[in-house]
Design a protein around this nucleic acid. Structure first.
Length: 294
DNA sequence: ATGATTTGACCTAG
DNA sequence: CTAGGTCAAATCAT
């Protein structure tokens, strides 16, 4: 996909930008009103407030809880020594940010570590659970769940939960080459140190994404319906979505795939919940189309 | 030896 | 009580 937008699409683009700005403003206002910081998220946002804040906080909090427990239970005898200590220690996640993909591969640009597998009721195939490989070293909260599709065992239904808060520290700063499938996305990637484009990891090489990948945005909190890209998203929307996609989302979402949601379908809540990535998004815009928000 | 995966038990939300 | 998410010891791979 080329980086040039047809002129006829520019008005739609402006519209999208406008709505983004509006959403950002709403988020900011909400932030100001609530004035209830709920902790930093990699320093990229300070407060989202309300429900979203809670959701994020809970997912942030539970790992700390695990860590506490883990550090306590050392040295005990054989089986499940810390059983009692686990009581009430972790909370099931309330998913505030998630999106799903359907792909013939489970690989993406991030490195994941499997931490569990579970048979699911009425499902032919078990579900595998992965977390970011940098969870320990950087406390990254991103997880994903992968399940083979029953009706199409060649495809995997992957649900990404949470954003990557880890930094993919590059040994060499060059990030993406011309032949990279994210080329079109990468028009915003040279934003200096803010460039957070994930690099291909050691165990995941190029994502084997093709047009057969579908992505759908999910937010358990809003009513934004997940629909098929082919049905209702214009090529501009998909391009915009790719351009605007939060940095922590899997790179497959920025490459040649069908995209489901469009940015302007975000509810206010969604925009708010995504405020952590908004700086980057806005900056990208700023860089990309000379658009200033201040 | 070290790190990744497997797998059964544990825990919570609904 | 059940289903699903997570832990962590055991096992496997390098």
């Amino acid at each position: 996909m080329g980086t040039c937008l047809p002129e006829k699409l520019s008005s739609s683009r402006e519209k999208v930008i406008k709505e983004l700005v509006q959403g950002h403003e709403f988020a900011t206002q909400l932030q100001i009103r609530l004035q209830k910081p709920c902790g930093n998220f990699d320093g990229r946002f300070s407060s989202a407030g309300g429900e979203i804040c809670q959701n994020l906080a809970s997912s942030l909090g539970d790992s700390a809880c695990y860590d506490d427990r883990r550090s306590e239970d050392s040295g005990e005898s054989t089986k499940r020594p810390a059983t009692k200590d686990r009581r009430g220690c972790y909370k099931r996640k309330k998913i505030s940010q998630s999106w799903t993909t359907v792909c013939p591969t489970i690989e993406d640009s991030h490195a994941w570590r499997k931490y569990g597998q579970k048979g699911i009721l009425n499902a032919k195939y078990p579900r595998s659970y992965f977390r970011c490989i940098r969870k320990d070293e950087q406390g990254c909260k991103a997880t994903k769940q992968v399940q083979r599709m029953e009706d199409n065992p060649d495809m995997y239904h992957t649900t990404y939960i949470g954003s990557h808060t880890c930094r993919n520290i590059p040994e060499d700063p060059q990030i993406i080459t011309d032949s990279d499938p994210w080329e079109s996305y990468n028009l915003t990637s040279s934003v200096g140190s803010h460039s957070k484009i994930p690099r291909y990891e050691e165990q995941d090489h190029h994502p084997v994404m093709g047009s057969s990948c579908k992505v759908e945005q999910e937010s358990k909190e809003d009513q934004t319906p997940s629909t098929d890209l082919a049905d209702n998203v214009s090529s501009l929307d998909s391009l915009m979505w790719k351009d605007l996609i939060p940095v922590d989302e899997p790179p497959m979402m920025r490459s040649d795939y069908e995209v489901v949601d469009s940015i302007h379908l975000f509810s206010c809540t969604e925009v708010t919940s995504r405020s952590l990535d908004m700086d980057f998004v806005l900056e990208s815009f700023d860089f990309d189309c000379d658009f200033h928000f201040d």
